[in-house]
Protein backbone atom coordinates (compact mmCIF):
# COMPACT_ATOMS: atom_id res chain seq x y z
CA UNK A 1 0.00 0.00 0.00
CA UNK A 2 1.34 3.42 -0.91
CA UNK A 3 2.60 5.47 1.99
CA UNK A 4 -0.14 7.13 3.99
CA UNK A 5 -2.94 5.88 1.74
CA UNK A 6 -6.00 4.97 3.78
CA UNK A 7 -8.36 4.29 0.90
CA UNK A 8 -7.06 2.88 -2.35
CA UNK A 9 -9.34 2.57 -5.34
CA UNK A 10 -7.95 0.85 -8.39
CA UNK A 11 -9.43 0.61 -11.86
CA UNK A 12 -12.95 0.46 -10.45
CA UNK A 13 -15.71 -0.40 -12.90
CA UNK A 14 -19.43 -0.84 -12.74
CA UNK A 15 -21.69 -1.82 -15.59
CA UNK A 16 -25.47 -1.73 -15.29
CA UNK A 17 -27.77 -3.75 -17.47
CA UNK A 18 -30.35 -1.28 -18.74
CA UNK A 19 -31.94 -3.54 -21.34
CA UNK A 20 -35.66 -3.56 -21.84
CA UNK A 21 -37.44 -6.61 -20.42
CA UNK A 22 -36.76 -9.86 -22.21
CA UNK A 23 -40.12 -9.97 -23.99
CA UNK A 24 -39.75 -6.44 -25.39
CA UNK A 25 -36.29 -7.29 -26.58
CA UNK A 26 -37.58 -10.29 -28.45
CA UNK A 27 -40.54 -8.44 -29.96
CA UNK A 28 -38.65 -5.30 -30.88
CA UNK A 29 -35.49 -7.21 -31.72
CA UNK A 30 -33.69 -4.80 -29.43
CA UNK A 31 -30.22 -5.82 -28.33
CA UNK A 32 -29.14 -6.05 -24.71
CA UNK A 33 -27.98 -2.64 -23.48
CA UNK A 34 -25.44 -1.85 -20.83
CA UNK A 35 -24.35 1.36 -19.21
CA UNK A 36 -20.82 1.90 -17.96
CA UNK A 37 -21.60 3.99 -14.90
CA UNK A 38 -18.03 3.82 -13.63
CA UNK A 39 -15.31 3.08 -16.09
CA UNK A 40 -11.82 2.58 -14.70
CA UNK A 41 -11.66 4.96 -11.76
CA UNK A 42 -8.65 5.01 -9.44
CA UNK A 43 -7.60 7.30 -6.61
CA UNK A 44 -6.22 7.21 -3.09
CA UNK A 45 -7.31 9.01 0.03
CA UNK A 46 -4.84 9.72 2.79
CA UNK A 47 -5.76 9.38 6.42
CA UNK A 48 -7.35 12.55 7.77
CA UNK A 49 -7.90 14.20 4.43
CA UNK A 50 -11.03 15.06 2.50
CA UNK A 51 -11.14 13.70 -1.00
CA UNK A 52 -13.96 15.18 -3.05
CA UNK A 53 -15.59 13.86 -6.18
CA UNK A 54 -17.25 16.46 -8.37
CA UNK A 55 -19.05 16.16 -11.65
CA UNK A 56 -22.42 16.76 -13.17
CA UNK A 57 -25.44 14.56 -12.74
CA UNK A 58 -24.91 11.02 -13.95
CA UNK A 59 -21.12 11.20 -13.95
CA UNK A 60 -20.93 8.23 -11.57
CA UNK A 61 -20.10 9.85 -8.24
CA UNK A 62 -22.71 8.00 -6.20
CA UNK A 63 -21.90 4.72 -7.88
CA UNK A 64 -18.24 5.10 -6.89
CA UNK A 65 -19.26 5.96 -3.33
CA UNK A 66 -21.53 2.94 -3.04
CA UNK A 67 -18.79 0.64 -4.25
CA UNK A 68 -16.23 2.18 -1.91
CA UNK A 69 -18.36 1.52 1.15
CA UNK A 70 -19.33 -1.92 -0.08
CA UNK A 71 -23.01 -1.22 -0.76
CA UNK A 72 -22.62 -2.17 -4.41
CA UNK A 73 -20.34 -4.86 -5.81
CA UNK A 74 -17.97 -3.59 -8.50
CA UNK A 75 -17.97 -5.21 -11.93
CA UNK A 76 -14.19 -5.04 -11.80
CA UNK A 77 -11.43 -3.34 -9.89
CA UNK A 78 -10.44 -3.14 -6.30
CA UNK A 79 -11.13 -1.06 -3.21
CA UNK A 80 -8.88 -1.33 -0.18
CA UNK A 81 -9.51 0.51 3.05
CA UNK A 82 -6.97 0.45 5.86
CA UNK A 83 -5.24 -2.33 3.93
CA UNK A 84 -8.33 -4.53 3.87
CA UNK A 85 -9.87 -5.47 0.56
CA UNK A 86 -13.54 -4.64 0.18
CA UNK A 87 -13.89 -7.28 -2.51
CA UNK A 88 -11.59 -10.22 -1.72
CA UNK A 89 -13.74 -13.01 -0.21
CA UNK A 90 -10.77 -14.24 1.84
CA UNK A 91 -10.86 -11.03 3.86
CA UNK A 92 -14.51 -11.25 4.78
CA UNK A 93 -13.89 -11.43 8.52
CA UNK A 94 -11.55 -8.46 8.56
CA UNK A 95 -14.00 -6.59 6.39
CA UNK A 96 -16.82 -7.16 8.85
CA UNK A 97 -14.77 -5.53 11.56
CA UNK A 98 -13.89 -2.69 9.21
CA UNK A 99 -17.53 -2.03 8.31
CA UNK A 100 -18.16 -0.45 11.68
CA UNK A 101 -15.52 2.15 10.93
CA UNK A 102 -17.01 3.16 7.59
CA UNK A 103 -20.24 5.11 7.43
CA UNK A 104 -22.20 6.88 4.77
CA UNK A 105 -24.25 10.08 4.96
CA UNK A 106 -26.82 10.70 2.26
CA UNK A 107 -28.46 13.75 0.74
CA UNK A 108 -31.82 12.93 2.19
CA UNK A 109 -31.29 11.81 5.77
CA UNK A 110 -35.00 11.17 6.19
CA UNK A 111 -34.96 8.39 3.61
CA UNK A 112 -32.31 6.53 5.57
CA UNK A 113 -34.12 6.68 8.90
CA UNK A 114 -36.93 4.52 10.13
CA UNK A 115 -39.69 7.10 10.76
CA UNK A 116 -41.18 4.98 13.54
CA UNK A 117 -37.99 4.83 15.56
CA UNK A 118 -37.03 7.46 18.05
CA UNK A 119 -33.84 9.29 17.24
CA UNK A 120 -32.12 7.64 20.20
CA UNK A 121 -32.78 4.19 18.73
CA UNK A 122 -31.67 5.34 15.30
CA UNK A 123 -28.35 6.57 16.63
CA UNK A 124 -27.88 3.51 18.82
CA UNK A 125 -28.51 1.10 15.98
CA UNK A 126 -24.89 0.76 14.80
CA UNK A 127 -23.76 0.51 18.43
CA UNK A 128 -26.07 -2.46 18.89
CA UNK A 129 -25.40 -3.97 15.47
CA UNK A 130 -21.68 -4.05 16.04
CA UNK A 131 -22.08 -4.78 19.74
CA UNK A 132 -19.82 -1.88 20.62
CA UNK A 133 -21.20 -0.98 24.03
CA UNK A 134 -22.96 -3.25 26.53
CA UNK A 135 -25.81 -2.15 28.76
CA UNK A 136 -28.75 0.15 28.05
CA UNK A 137 -27.56 2.88 30.40
CA UNK A 138 -24.15 3.01 28.76
CA UNK A 139 -25.69 3.11 25.32
CA UNK A 140 -28.05 5.90 26.35
CA UNK A 141 -25.08 7.80 27.74
CA UNK A 142 -23.16 7.42 24.50
CA UNK A 143 -26.19 8.53 22.42
CA UNK A 144 -26.48 11.66 24.54
CA UNK A 145 -22.80 12.35 24.06
CA UNK A 146 -23.14 11.95 20.29
CA UNK A 147 -26.15 14.27 20.15
CA UNK A 148 -24.17 16.90 22.01
CA UNK A 149 -21.23 16.38 19.66
CA UNK A 150 -23.38 17.31 16.65
CA UNK A 151 -24.97 20.28 18.37
CA UNK A 152 -28.24 18.71 19.50
CA UNK A 153 -29.53 18.04 23.01
CA UNK A 154 -29.47 14.63 24.72
CA UNK A 155 -33.24 14.99 25.26
CA UNK A 156 -33.68 14.99 21.50
CA UNK A 157 -33.13 11.21 21.66
CA UNK A 158 -36.80 10.84 22.59
CA UNK A 159 -38.08 12.59 19.48
CA UNK A 160 -39.02 11.12 16.12
CA UNK A 161 -37.27 12.10 12.86
CA UNK A 162 -40.25 14.09 11.58
CA UNK A 163 -39.99 16.41 14.56
CA UNK A 164 -36.68 17.73 13.25
CA UNK A 165 -35.82 20.16 10.48
CA UNK A 166 -33.74 19.03 7.52
CA UNK A 167 -30.53 20.35 9.00
CA UNK A 168 -31.22 18.78 12.38
CA UNK A 169 -31.94 15.45 10.71
CA UNK A 170 -28.62 15.64 8.91
CA UNK A 171 -27.04 16.18 12.34
CA UNK A 172 -28.78 13.04 13.54
CA UNK A 173 -27.43 11.17 10.51
CA UNK A 174 -23.93 12.37 11.34
CA UNK A 175 -24.36 11.35 14.99
CA UNK A 176 -25.43 7.88 13.87
CA UNK A 177 -22.47 7.69 11.50
CA UNK A 178 -20.14 8.53 14.38
CA UNK A 179 -21.84 6.13 16.78
CA UNK A 180 -19.90 3.20 15.46
CA UNK A 181 -16.57 4.93 16.03
CA UNK A 182 -16.39 5.60 12.34
CA UNK A 183 -13.10 6.89 11.07
CA UNK A 184 -14.10 7.10 7.42
CA UNK A 185 -17.23 8.98 6.40
CA UNK A 186 -18.59 9.02 2.91
CA UNK A 187 -20.94 11.94 2.35
CA UNK A 188 -23.01 11.78 -0.83
CA UNK A 189 -24.29 15.32 -1.34
CA UNK A 190 -24.83 15.64 2.42
CA UNK A 191 -25.82 19.31 2.24
CA UNK A 192 -27.40 19.54 -1.21
CA UNK A 193 -30.94 19.49 0.13
CA UNK A 194 -30.27 22.09 2.80
CA UNK A 195 -30.63 25.85 2.87
CA UNK A 196 -27.37 27.75 2.68
CA UNK A 197 -27.41 28.85 6.29
CA UNK A 198 -28.06 25.28 7.42
CA UNK A 199 -25.49 23.99 4.96
CA UNK A 200 -22.93 26.29 6.57
CA UNK A 201 -23.75 24.77 9.97
CA UNK A 202 -23.30 21.21 8.70
CA UNK A 203 -20.11 21.95 6.74
CA UNK A 204 -18.61 23.67 9.78
CA UNK A 205 -19.65 20.73 11.94
CA UNK A 206 -18.08 18.22 9.55
CA UNK A 207 -14.81 20.13 9.60
CA UNK A 208 -14.79 20.47 13.37
CA UNK A 209 -15.40 16.75 13.77
CA UNK A 210 -12.64 15.98 11.33
CA UNK A 211 -10.20 18.10 13.31
CA UNK A 212 -11.28 16.64 16.63
CA UNK A 213 -11.58 13.00 15.65
CA UNK A 214 -9.10 12.74 12.79
CA UNK A 215 -11.80 11.56 10.36
CA UNK A 216 -11.16 10.78 6.73
CA UNK A 217 -13.83 11.95 4.28
CA UNK A 218 -14.93 11.04 0.82
CA UNK A 219 -17.12 14.03 -0.01
CA UNK A 220 -19.40 14.09 -3.00
CA UNK A 221 -21.00 17.19 -4.33
CA UNK A 222 -21.88 18.82 -7.58
CA UNK A 223 -21.35 22.22 -5.96
CA UNK A 224 -17.81 23.33 -6.72
CA UNK A 225 -17.80 26.12 -4.17
CA UNK A 226 -18.76 23.67 -1.44
CA UNK A 227 -16.08 21.27 -2.62
CA UNK A 228 -13.51 24.02 -2.63
CA UNK A 229 -14.43 24.79 0.93
CA UNK A 230 -14.21 21.20 2.14
CA UNK A 231 -11.68 19.28 0.10
CA UNK A 232 -7.99 18.61 0.41
CA UNK A 233 -7.87 16.86 -2.93
CA UNK A 234 -10.41 16.62 -5.70
CA UNK A 235 -11.32 14.19 -8.46
CA UNK A 236 -13.36 15.50 -11.39
CA UNK A 237 -15.63 12.92 -13.02
CA UNK A 238 -17.20 12.94 -16.46
CA UNK A 239 -19.34 10.09 -17.80
CA UNK A 240 -17.95 7.49 -15.44
CA UNK A 241 -14.30 8.42 -15.77
CA UNK A 242 -11.96 10.48 -13.70
CA UNK A 243 -10.72 13.23 -16.00
CA UNK A 244 -8.57 15.13 -13.53
CA UNK A 245 -7.28 14.59 -10.00
CA UNK A 246 -5.28 17.03 -7.97
CA UNK A 247 -4.99 19.01 -4.80
CA UNK A 248 -7.36 21.86 -4.23
CA UNK A 249 -4.94 24.59 -5.24
CA UNK A 250 -4.23 22.92 -8.58
CA UNK A 251 -7.78 22.09 -9.50
CA UNK A 252 -9.06 25.56 -8.70
CA UNK A 253 -5.94 27.56 -9.49
CA UNK A 254 -4.53 25.78 -12.52
CA UNK A 255 -7.16 23.40 -13.88
CA UNK A 256 -5.82 21.56 -16.89
CA UNK A 257 -8.55 19.34 -18.28
CA UNK A 258 -10.86 21.22 -20.67
CA UNK A 259 -13.87 19.84 -18.81
CA UNK A 260 -12.58 21.05 -15.46
CA UNK A 261 -12.00 24.45 -16.98
CA UNK A 262 -15.45 24.50 -18.51
CA UNK A 263 -17.04 23.45 -15.26
CA UNK A 264 -15.24 26.15 -13.30
CA UNK A 265 -16.27 28.74 -15.86
CA UNK A 266 -19.85 27.60 -15.71
CA UNK A 267 -20.24 27.93 -11.96
CA UNK A 268 -22.33 30.85 -10.88
CA UNK A 269 -20.46 32.51 -8.10
CA UNK A 270 -21.10 35.30 -5.65
CA UNK A 271 -17.85 36.91 -6.67
CA UNK A 272 -18.95 37.22 -10.27
CA UNK A 273 -21.56 39.93 -10.18
CA UNK A 274 -22.91 40.63 -13.63
CA UNK A 275 -20.22 38.52 -15.23
CA UNK A 276 -21.38 36.61 -18.24
CA UNK A 277 -20.40 33.00 -17.97
CA UNK A 278 -18.40 31.37 -20.69
CA UNK A 279 -21.05 29.76 -22.81
CA UNK A 280 -20.79 26.01 -22.67
CA UNK A 281 -21.70 24.06 -25.72
CA UNK A 282 -23.74 20.90 -25.59
CA UNK A 283 -24.91 18.67 -22.80
CA UNK A 284 -23.72 15.44 -21.27
CA UNK A 285 -24.21 12.72 -23.88
CA UNK A 286 -26.36 9.67 -23.34
CA UNK A 287 -24.29 7.35 -21.12
CA UNK A 288 -25.72 4.26 -22.83
CA UNK A 289 -24.17 5.32 -26.09
CA UNK A 290 -21.18 7.48 -25.13
CA UNK A 291 -18.92 9.09 -27.74
CA UNK A 292 -15.84 7.10 -28.71
CA UNK A 293 -12.36 8.05 -27.56
CA UNK A 294 -12.43 10.82 -25.01
CA UNK A 295 -16.11 11.03 -24.04
CA UNK A 296 -15.80 14.81 -23.69
CA UNK A 297 -14.75 15.26 -27.32
CA UNK A 298 -18.10 16.48 -28.77
CA UNK A 299 -18.07 19.41 -26.33
CA UNK A 300 -14.35 20.07 -26.30
CA UNK A 301 -12.86 23.02 -28.16
CA UNK A 302 -9.53 21.16 -28.45
CA UNK A 303 -10.73 17.83 -29.81
CA UNK A 304 -8.92 16.29 -32.77
CA UNK A 305 -9.04 12.92 -34.51
CA UNK A 306 -7.01 11.19 -31.82
CA UNK A 307 -9.50 12.43 -29.21
CA UNK A 308 -12.35 10.88 -31.18
CA UNK A 309 -10.60 7.53 -31.44
CA UNK A 310 -8.47 6.88 -28.38
CA UNK A 311 -9.43 6.97 -24.71
CA UNK A 312 -6.96 9.25 -22.92
CA UNK A 313 -5.19 7.74 -19.91
CA UNK A 314 -4.87 9.53 -16.62
CA UNK A 315 -1.29 10.78 -16.80
CA UNK A 316 0.07 12.96 -14.06
CA UNK A 317 -3.46 13.66 -12.85
CA UNK A 318 -5.07 14.54 -16.20
CA UNK A 319 -6.74 12.41 -18.82
CA UNK A 320 -6.53 14.58 -21.94
CA UNK A 321 -4.66 14.16 -25.19
CA UNK A 322 -4.34 17.89 -25.70
CA UNK A 323 -2.70 18.31 -22.30
CA UNK A 324 -0.42 15.34 -22.88
CA UNK A 325 0.61 16.67 -26.28
CA UNK A 326 1.24 20.12 -24.88
CA UNK A 327 -1.45 21.61 -27.11
CA UNK A 328 -3.05 23.38 -24.17
CA UNK A 329 -1.37 26.36 -22.58
CA UNK A 330 -0.90 25.88 -18.84
Amino acid sequence: MSAGAYVEVEDLRRVFDVSKPWLNRVIERAPRQTLKAVDGVGFTIRRGETFALVGESGSGKSTVARMVVGLLPPSAGEVRIADISMTDPRQAAARRRLRARIQMIFQDPYASMNPRWRVGAIIAEPIRAFNLIQGEAAIRERVGELLRLVGLHPDDARKYPHEFSGGQRQRVAIARALASQAEFLVGDEPTSALDVSVQAQILNLMRDLQDRLGLTYLFISHNLAVVRHMATRIGVMYLGRLVEVGDKATIFGRPRHPYTRMLLDAVPDLAHIGRARTPVSGEIPNPIDPPSGCTFNPRCPHANNRCRAEVPKLIDGVACHAVEEGRLGA
Partner: peptide
Protein backbone atom coordinates in the same frame (compact mmCIF):
# COMPACT_ATOMS: atom_id res chain seq x y z
CA UNK B 1 -22.72 31.36 4.86
CA UNK B 2 -22.24 30.76 1.15
CA UNK B 3 -18.98 29.13 0.14
CA UNK B 4 -17.56 30.84 -2.93
CA UNK B 5 -14.92 29.91 -5.44
CA UNK B 6 -12.65 32.62 -4.15
CA UNK B 7 -13.22 32.32 -0.43
CA UNK B 8 -10.30 31.47 1.75
CA UNK B 9 -12.19 31.45 5.01
CA UNK B 10 -11.71 28.38 7.16
CA UNK B 11 -15.19 28.65 8.56
CA UNK B 12 -18.41 29.79 7.02
CA UNK B 13 -20.53 32.31 8.83
CA UNK B 14 -23.06 30.44 10.85
CA UNK B 15 -26.50 31.80 11.56
Amino acid sequence: AIPTLSDTAERLTQI
